[in-house]
């Protein structure tokens, strides 16, 4: 199956000469959820804006559903829904009218049942006749989501949908994303919450300074980059790591009560068996052992640092 979103060497240089996208290439499969991670100013919003027609790319090309975003912009945009990063809504308009407006704008015939379903799903139905300015910040964000969903997009861009929202909305969001995934909607999500990407994305793309550093399957990324740590709690504390264990590069912590061993799951052998044998040969008795895997966040931070170096 051809990718539903295909970005080829997309470039954006803003009027002031700032190069926000330096030739981004990316392919997104239909039905997948891809999380775009990157620090502030990495170019996430610029990439989304270029794909949605809000800003004109200055080089390269892109397709959505096989339609070029410039030459067949109508067909391409009909498939796209966008929840922008910044809340932008007309303050004096009623919730239901602004949602209906969006549906019309995307060329869809009136469908009151669908609008009701979307508003109910977002717990906005009771507020349908309120004016936007009477809503709380989180509710406004829900309205933005409703506006994007009401024209039944096949590709949904969520630009930091959960920034500054409460736990409940975040959970609702994840549920909605899950429902959309089951309907086969492709979702491109930017977020600064790594646990969010970890929880809902199939693939992770990391972008920094206008360049994609990597795109990878989330699970594969975590095992590939995932370093594990084995923590060994000792029954009796030691002053220093015994010389015989030097080759394992252990960290001593907790007043000499515990040793940490870092290993790579990619390696041939992890060295754990030998380490444990060496420990007992040294006469150290163990109280407890546990392993932890580094989170996406640690992976992500180390990657950004590497690229900066």
């Amino acid at each position: 199956m051809p990718p539903i979103v295909k970005v080829e060497n997309l470039q954006k240089t803003y009027d002031g000469g700032f190069e926000a996208l330096k030739g981004v290439s990316l392919e997104i499969e239909e039905g997948e959820i891809i999380a775009l991670l990157g620090p502030n100013g990495a170019g996430k919003t610029t990439l989304i804006s270029a794909l949605c027609g809000i800003t004109g790319p200055t080089g390269g090309r892109a397709e959505v559903g096989g339609h070029d975003i410039i030459t067949s912009y109508r067909k391409a945009r009909e498939m796209i829904g966008l929840v922008p990063q910044e809340v932008a809504l007309e303050p004096f308009e009623k919730v239901i009218n602004t949602v209906k407006f969006s549906r019309g704008l995307f060329g869809k015939q009136r469908d009151d049942a669908l609008i009701e379903r979307v508003l109910r799903q977002l717990s906005l139905w009771d507020k349908r006749n309120s004016r936007i300015r009477e809503l709380s910040g989180g509710m406004k964000r829900r309205v933005l989501i409703a506006k994007a969903l009401c024209h039944e997009p096949r590709v949904l861009f969520l630009d930091e949908p959960t920034a500054g929202v409460d736990v409940e909305l975040r959970r609702d969001m994840w549920q909605i994303v899950d429902g959309l995934r089951r309907e086969g909607v492709t979702i491109i999500l930017t977020t600064h919450y790594i646990e969010e990407a970890e929880a809902i994305a199939d693939r992770i793309a990391v972008i920094n300074k206008g360049e994609i550093l990597l795109v990878e399957d989330k699970a594969a990324l975590m095992t590939r980059m995932g370093r594990k740590t084995l923590r060994i709690d000792l029954r009796d504390p030691v002053d220093k790591v015994p010389d015989a264990l030097a080759e394992y590069d252990l960290d001593l912590s907790d007043d000499g009560h515990s040793l940490s061993y870092h290993y790579d799951t990619r390696g041939e052998g992890t060295g754990i068996t030998r380490l444990l044998q060496a420990l007992s040969a040294e006469g150290l008795s163990l109280r407890d052992i546990q392993t932890t895997q580094s989170s996406l966040e640690e992976i992500f931070v180390s990657m950004i640092q590497e690229s900066a170096a």
Binding site: C52, I54, A76, R77, A88, L89, E90, L105, F106, G107
Partner: peptide, 11 residues
């Protein structure tokens, strides 16, 4: 008020 984004992104 920045709602122009919607007009620009519409087909």
């Amino acid at each position: 008020i920045d709602t122009i984004f919607e007009i620009l992104s519409a087909p």
